[in-house]
Design a protein around this nucleic acid. Structure first.
Lengths: 313, 313
DNA sequence: CCACTTGTCTGACGATAGTCAGATAATATA
DNA sequence: TATATTATCTGACTATCGTCAGACAAGTGG
């Protein structure tokens, strides 16, 4: 890869770590241990379950209990057992906890102001626009793909988003029951697979492959959340599905799509899909595409580990 | 200030802290305590004095001694008394210390590669270019001004840079002895002041004010290092000198300059200086400028604390 | 109902980070 | 030469962070 790009990224890391990190430290966690501040922040205005906090901050359960008790003793939080599940405990900020959080918020603003302070108006614009770009591209690089269970709540959420979008974009809406189905069982190995893209643990996109006939597969339910479009995530999901197909000895990948989905059509054409005659009777489709897969070696880089299940102690 | 800009900066901070900070941690300081790694890194290939390391990393002297001894016990560094000064001790990496450092270096590369990995070529270009811009502007916001002693080594270094630049840019060179002097004593309160701009502790620019007659001051030795030009540092130095003049009840600020110093002339004009007849016989000058100062309240924001002396325990 | 899982809590640790007061030796300064 | 100052080292602490093994209660699935 480009050595200059690597140098730029490293230099950026140093500068930013210094500017954000150091100043962040000095400004944000003033009298309080860092993890206490982080917790106050993450509990938020609405309260949060301990297990969620543990996951988000990557803390040991025993450790969390103690820090939480310390916060409770200071009168900043109240911990109580959740209604629905007697094992789960959830934390809420008290009045003075909310005050502390507001103070953190104010400090965070102050830090930002401090950075913008000495710049001219034009420089500020340049800085914020460049920051926005960096952020967007860094987020693109933080998206991870994994094969997941299509019955999970996150998978179902993705499908709902997908259907909702089709419904709003297709002329005359979209009714899943009239469309050629991809049953849940069909999206589980060995009959198929569902790939979910996640950013910070949250699902942000999906795509599925269904092995139909011998050596033929169909791509289904390609959806990327609007905020992340144009960053190549869709392309990565597709590559991954093709890799899975290739591993399953598939030689031909097919898909059908609706004419209103311009960006998807562009993605397919760009990836080497060519338009063919209708190969099924999907009522919502206007275009049918297919692509011949080369040997498995065309996909040397295995992007994901199979069935990644995230869990923390 | 622009609330949207503040939000963008904060959001940037979060994302980058997560991406760089978290991953940095996981990648870089693998088996070793963070401060040991930081020290190995900062000692560098050539070795470094302990007092410098203490300053750079902001460590307590006792603490540093112990961490250093731990590194020595691991066979990674050798500490010995400096030749020139029997009080000073300096640390050098051993062979295996150098290996550890190379490993850190490699990890740092790996992190950068990991970020660039999933991006397309065009995205990489966008990212590195945006990163460069952010870095440059962040650095601009990290520059601090302080009134300093004009006899310090850093002040002298600035003057040398300044003279060297004049010498290379003026047609026929520049000889300080032929120019109207600004004696060192003249740049110390109450007769005048020297402002030095620093980035990460290193001097990156200077500017001086000399109170000549009652209510009149002259600006002298305005210099900004080439890498930081165009970022408004010169303007800040000038504002600061004007503020000092204003505080000293000066009503008129004057300066002379050479026609080859285009960017300086632009700076002066932009700041409200107007060209006047020659008010002295400076042989190297082609333009003379002056600016009437408004009341002191025109400079409500005091940028610096007087005589900031950086020292750490 | 019984075994298993999940989420939390407790106790007992060890490692790292950070601070402070004072001792010591080498230099700088008056 | 007497008196600071500088740079380091030592000892004695405290706080925070992080980990591990096990207890316990609430829910889950057979």
């Amino acid at each position: 890869m480009d050595a200059e790009a690597v140098l730029q990224v490293r230099s950026f890391n140093r500068t930013v770590a210094e500017r954000i990190g150091a100043v962040n430290d000095r400004f944000l966690h003033q009298p309080r241990p860092m993890n206490e501040s982080r917790l106050i922040w993450e509990i938020g205005l609405e309260g949060e379950e301990l297990r969620t906090l543990r996951m988000r901050l990557g803390l040991d359960s025993g450790y969390l209990t103690r820090v939480m008790r310390s916060l409770a003793k200071q009168g900043l939080v109240r911990v109580r057992t959740a209604r629905q599940d007697g094992r789960v405990r959830s934390a809420h900020l008290t009045k003075s906890g909310l005050r502390v959080r507001a103070e953190l918020d104010r400090r965070s603003d102050e830090l930002a102001l401090h950075i913008l302070d000495v710049l001219t108006g034009k420089q500020r614009e340049q800085l914020t626009s460049a920051m926005g770009q960096v952020e967007r591209l860094l987020e693109a690089s933080m998206v991870h793909l994994a094969i997941e269970d299509p019955t999970s709540t996150d998978a179902i959420w993705c499908f709902e988003q997908y259907f909702a979008e089709l419904n709003s974009r297709f002329e005359g809406g979209f009714d899943p029951t009239r469309s050629i189905s991809a049953e849940t069982q069909e999206l589980v190995p060995p009959r198929g697979a569902l790939v979910i893209a996640r950013l910070r643990g949250q699902p942000v996109g999906c795509g599925a492959v269904k092995f139909t006939k011998k050596r033929v597969a169909e791509l289904k339910r390609m959806w990327i959340c609007p905020a992340l479009r144009g960053l190549g995530v869709g392309r990565r999901v597709m590559n991954e599905l093709e890799r899975l197909a290739s591993e399953a000895n598939v030689h031909l990948v097919r898909l059908e799509t609706n004419r209103t989905l311009k960006e998807a059509i562009r993605l397919y054409r760009g990836a080497g899909y060519v338009e063919v005659e209708a190969f099924n009777a999907e009522p919502y489709a206007h275009h049918w595409f297919e692509k011949r897969l080369a040997r498995a070696s065309r996909f040397p880089k295995k992007e994901l580990t199979r069935l990644v299940i995230q869990s923390r102690k």
